[in-house]
């Protein structure tokens, strides 16, 4: 049996387990509803305004930086596995690659993208 068939079994059983827990609870838990209980929690006061609003952009900047560096790691992992047999040339190439990314990080740092204002 291939590895991925095993992973698939894990995925299916995990899904069944997660759904089963919630469904079991739904079958046995009591239902006593009242309007106040169904309000969302906000320290006891009535809520004001919509929740799903535009959010601050600092989060977006971190997400952008993350995407850049996360793609980098996809390149770094195969390189690291074959590191010992690749020789000096591949090592220097990767240093150049990381250096370009470090310049990017430095630029983001300089422009204040890493500051939480």
């Amino acid at each position: 049996m291939s590895d991925w068939a095993g992973v698939f079994i894990f995925l299916v059983v995990a899904l069944i387990f997660g759904a089963g827990g919630i469904v079991t609870s739904f079958l046995i838990h009591p239902r006593r509803q009242n309007p106040a209980k169904l309000e969302e929690y906000e320290c006891g006061l009535p809520t004001r305004g919509p929740t799903w609003v535009q959010f601050r952009t600092s989060y977006f900047l971190y997400a952008l930086l993350f995407v850049i560096f996360d793609v980098e790691t996809i390149y770094l992992y195969p390189w690291a596995v074959k590191f010992q047999s690749l020789g000096l040339f591949a090592f220097i190439e990767m240093i150049i690659f990381i250096f370009i990314l470090i310049v990017g990080l430095w630029y983001a740092w300089k422009e204040g993208a890493l500051e939480w204002k």
Partner: peptide, 17 residues
């Protein structure tokens, strides 16, 4: 709202493989 607690356990179980 109900999908999140069902799915939260899936990656954890899969990792233990």
């Amino acid at each position: 709202f109900l999908l999140a607690p069902v799915l939260i356990f899936v990656p954890t179980v899969m990792v233990f493989a």
